[in-house]
Design a protein around this nucleic acid. Structure first.
Length: 413
DNA sequence: TCTGGGGTCCTAGGACCC
DNA sequence: TCTGGGGTCCTAGGACCC
């Protein structure tokens, strides 16, 4: 129970019961696009794909929607997945992560808009700033969702859960005022449950759950609703005859440990009972920075080596730019290759001193490249840097003069 | 021409050190 | 000949998330 008014604890917290919210923007990218193209409201729309193929046929600068030039899925050819689908599109069976070619079979008439990440980041800042005005303790979970610690804001209330619901309603209205967008909130004693709860009454829902609600509201749900149980664990549980969170909760912990290992097995047992002590973390240092690209068509390591080499150098330069912009240097440089059969390899190499330099990164990445099989055609190439430290707090290694990049030799040169 | 791009965390083995 | 324990760092792969 939450401590009643008149007996708050020294730190303003409760007896251990927390009140944590999870806020999730509804169909975020697609909803931002609908702000720009209100005429599309009510129609199935998906966001995804590689580049804008919208162009007014007469060269005019009319809005492409008015001009009737927004492409439909049927006309799309090439690689790419759906980033977000409106609820009208989801009703046709498409969802984020689905390949566009497959989605085109299910919803050939759905409209396809290219992603505009700069714009989504702008709206992301707007909604987070709006929430911060009410509740400063926010944990960023990406562009369209956050956890919020309500505990210090409602602990002194006679009925903290009623106060939490009122606060959620206020926040939801403030987000709409600031952005024109709708969101859903889950409010429960911890992050795990709130994440599940925010999804229960989407879109535009507010779901408040207390510990006593777990059997009725959580246990009937599929195990995959638990954040951390993904496709693999879900399939394995299913093969063991466990489909719902309730069935998982009823499974003997030792039996779970036997099948999933000590750490994961014990965690799953606790999760199924709604137990989660993780705090709301308002700041964390980045651990790695990476850039990767999937090619329009698979590339051959030998035949396409010129193309690959310049793409590779470009990725290293982008990583270096990201490091500088964010103020970090890194020591562990790595590469990622995905082959045409979708198999994947990574190699990395740790250097003596942290660097931000594109030439140093390119050289280390080039060494990694020499340790990788290059028989198959490539689908994807990526460059990553880890073991980050704030730049300036460390010596960032020897400077490499400009122009050095072009003369670095490696397998792709 | 199914399957993007940016991340985090975990595991596990070997090297190396005390 | 057979016998140790940590602890940390590095590397590779994989699951998972948004």
């Amino acid at each position: 129970m939450v401590v009643p008014p008149g007996m708050p604890e020294a730190d303003g917290r409760t007896d251990g019961t927390r009140v944590v919210a999870h806020l999730d923007m509804d169909a975020f990218y697609a909803s931002v696009e609908l702000l720009r193209h209100p005429a599309l409201r009510g129609r199935p729309v998906v966001v995804g794909g590689r580049r804008r193929i919208v162009a007014a046929a007469d060269g005019s600068d009319r809005d492409p929607v008015d001009a009737g030039t927004i492409p439909v899925l049927r006309d799309y050819a090439g690689r790419g997945v759906i980033t977000t689908a409106t609820y009208e599109a989801r009703a046709l069976g498409v969802h984020s992560g689905m390949g566009l070619m497959k989605a085109a079979q299910l919803a050939p008439d759905a409209l396809l808009l290219p992603a505009d990440f700069d714009r989504y980041r702008l709206y992301s800042r707007r909604f987070k700033d709006a929430v911060r005005a009410f509740a400063p303790q926010i944990e960023d979970r990406g562009i369209d969702e956050i956890y919020i610690d309500f505990t210090p804001l409602v602990a002194a209330s006679a009925d903290p859960w009623a106060a939490a619901r009122a606060l959620a309603i206020e926040i939801q209205a403030a987000v709409r005022t600031a952005t024109g967008l709708s969101c859903s909130l889950g409010v429960t004693p911890n992050k795990l449950l709130s994440k599940i709860a925010s999804d229960l009454e989407k879109p535009g829902g507010i779901t408040v759950l207390m510990a006593g609600d777990i059997p009725a509201r959580i246990w009937p749900l599929a195990v995959r609703k638990v954040n951390g149980i993904g496709p693999k664990a879900g399939a394995k549980l299913e093969s063991l005859g466990i489909r719902t969170i309730g069935e998982l909760a009823a499974a003997p912990p030792d039996w779970l440990v036997e099948h999933f290992g000590r750490s994961f097995g014990q965690w799953m047992h606790a999760a199924a009972h709604g137990r989660d002590e993780r705090p709301v973390v308002t700041f964390s240092e980045p651990k790695s920075i990476s850039r990767e690209t999937t090619f329009e068509h698979d590339l051959h390591p030998v035949r396409d080596r010129t193309t690959l080499s310049s793409l590779f150098t470009g990725l290293c330069e982008k990583v270096a730019e990201d490091l500088r912009r964010k103020g970090y240097a890194g020591r562990t440089i790595g590469i990622k290759l995905r082959y045409d059969d979708f198999s994947q390899v990574t190699r990395d190499r740790t250097i003596d001193h942290p660097t931000q330099d594109a030439g140093m990164i390119r050289r280390a990445a080039g060494e990694c490249l020499k340790r990788v099989p290059l028989a198959r055609r490539l689908r994807l190439l990526g460059v990553r840097i880890g073991s980050l430290s704030p730049a300036g707090s460390v010596e960032t290694g020897e400077k490499v003069e400009a122009g050095r990049l072009g003369v670095n030799r490696s397998l792709f040169d």
